[in-house]
């Protein structure tokens, strides 16, 4: 049994109220600045808002936000506002986030965030687009091989640093299993790409430099065709050291 009067403690705010939207924007900004894997997310819908009084001052916005994956990797310095939402035909991924945002003296500060993400159902995707490839498991043999082959192709063609795989983020296996498409993040090492003999002896640079690649491996009789396009981002400080809206500490799960 709930304690008496507990239902009267918070006030309900319209989800599309400018105050709710302002809190949601601060929350999404915080989330994207503190991601270090996967893709940046965009706000899709404000699901629920409760505003609790906070002693001695301020209010806490308890919010549930629906988000959508964008095409920008978390390590991509592009502001999230400039990132495109991944369309449904690319097998969209949605996020469900619970935020607690403090409003004090007119300023919003994120206190905590917890997000889960999940891809759209295969059935829904196939109903809407029967020929669209669905996301493949990232540990699938073909997927792992495609990422290795694409990264190797990139390192063979570059005159700069040798890049290591950071994470495989997305993959699908196309028509008749002959074409495997992968997206992955990579990081520069202290080895030169054209001189590396043992990649296990290469170390990440102190000033981290990341890149993001899209690669395709197509099986043709007795051989394979590899194509890869990579973007190398300017050197940056690690995301966990990057400045975050004050004050810390917020909980990020």
């Amino acid at each position: 049994v709930s304690p008496p009067m507990i239902g009267l403690l918070y006030r309900e705010v319209n989800c599309d109220d400018p105050e709710s939207e302002q809190a949601a924007m601060v929350a999404m900004d915080y989330l994207n600045k503190n991601l270090f894997r996967g893709y940046k997310h965009a706000l899709n819908r404000i699901e629920k808002v409760k505003v609790w009084p906070r002693r001695p001052f301020g209010e806490v916005f308890e919010m549930e936000l629906d988000t959508l994956e964008t095409t920008c990797h978390a390590l991509d310095p592009t502001p999230a506002a400039n990132c495109s939402v991944r369309p449904l035909v690319e097998h969209a991924v949605e996020g469900d986030c619970d935020f607690r945002v403090l409003k004090q003296a007119g300023q919003f500060t994120v206190l905590s965030v917890k997000c889960d993400s999940s891809p759209d159902s295969r059935e829904d995707l196939k109903k809407m687009c029967p020929d669209c490839p669905v996301l493949a498991p990232l540990n699938h043999t073909k997927v792992v091989h495609a990422a290795d082959a694409a990264l190797k192709a990139f390192n063979t063609q570059t005159n700069g640093s040798y890049f290591q795989l950071v994470e495989l983020t997305r993959a699908n296996i196309g028509y008749l299993s002959r074409t495997t498409y992968v997206e992955f993040a990579m990081a520069a090492t202290d080895c030169a790409a054209q001189e590396v003999t043992d990649p296990t002896k290469c170390n990440l640079l102190a000033e981290k430099q990341y890149g993001f690649c899209k690669g395709t491996v197509t099986e043709i009789p007795r051989q394979e065709k590899v194509s890869v396009t990579c973007t190398v981002f300017p050197p940056q400080t690690q995301p966990d050291n990057s400045p975050v809206a004050s004050p810390p500490p917020a909980t990020l799960l």
């Binding site: 309900e12 705010v13 319209n14 989800c15 599309d16 709710s20 965009a42 706000l43 899709n44 819908r45 404000i46 699901e47 629920k48 808002v49 629906d66 959508l68 939402v85 449904l88 969209a92 949605e94 759209d120 829904d124």
Partner: peptide, 27 residues
Amino acid sequence: SVVQPSVPVAAGPVVHPCPGRYRHFKV
């Protein structure tokens, strides 16, 4: 006692405070 004469009330828009609008699409 004072009784308000019956006045026809126009049906106003139904307010759905939450959830809010989709900014992109429904998944």
